[in-house]
Design a protein around this nucleic acid. Structure first.
Lengths: 125, 125
DNA sequence: TTAGGTGCAAAACCTTTGCCATCCC
DNA sequence: GGGATGGCAAAGGTTTTGCACCTAA
């Protein structure tokens, strides 16, 4: 991965904030420094930085919305190869929400736990 | 919420699968029964069913991708009012990944835990 | 020198919306 | 009847991509 001023500026913006900004927010910040940078470049660099492990990404939007008719709370496993989502039969830890509420002062209504890895089918192929 | 054959068909499809289908997959399934249903109707009904609590939705794509330069693993809290994402200072449970791997036969690389609720700022306003 | 990066604009993609006809209560 | 819902198509918003030019190594 080549070092460019665009990439450095993007990483600089990301490291200087504790918020978890969107691509568009980053774009607007970086433009203060490099006014003619393009949004495409921001996306390309975010992807490169993500792939090289320098940044983490939450809720990659390429992942489509998925729906589920199950009523009870349960956890999920998402295969990183085929993107399929499976239910996981693990008891839901309700106690942890209260602990986080105490710690943060936030109202914690529920949590979502998703495991990531490779499903059995994709291990074979 | 009014009862229509489109809504029933969508719910039927959702209840008959253990996969966690995308809107488009549901649309194609429902078309076998109601060939001229429109994708807009599928989305509208999924939203209605979601709001009434009859189905759950994973990764609502309205949520933009968000990026984070922190290197260490950590958990997040997402405010359901302002959509901001905060870091949570809770130790990461590494042992659970092995347990799920044993249980499922999947390769579990990591997990993501996100709490949901209302942040302090949004409680005041 | 040259593979990789940039800017720009267009395309792709998923989701929502406006409009009017239709259906359920 | 009248408000909720459906079908269609167009719009909306985010992300990706093609292409010609540039630049770091």
């Amino acid at each position: 991965m080549r070092k460019t001023k665009q990439k450095e500026a993007i990483l600089g913006v990301l490291r200087s904030t504790i918020s978890h900004p969107t691509a568009d927010w980053i774009y607007n910040e970086v433009r203060k420094e490099i006014p003619n940078i393009s949004l495409g470049t921001v996306y390309r660099n975010l992807r490169l930085l993500y792939q090289s492990g320098e940044i983490a990404e939450l809720d990659m939007c390429g992942t489509l919305s998925r729906f589920d008719a199950r009523q009870d709370e349960h956890y999920h496993f998402r295969c990183e190869k085929c993107s399929q989502v499976f239910d996981v039969d693990e008891p839901v830890n309700k106690e942890i929400d209260g602990r986080i509420a105490l710690k943060t002062g936030f109202v914690v209504e529920y949590h979502r736990l998703e495991f990531r890895g490779v499903c059995r089918k994709c291990q074979d192929s």
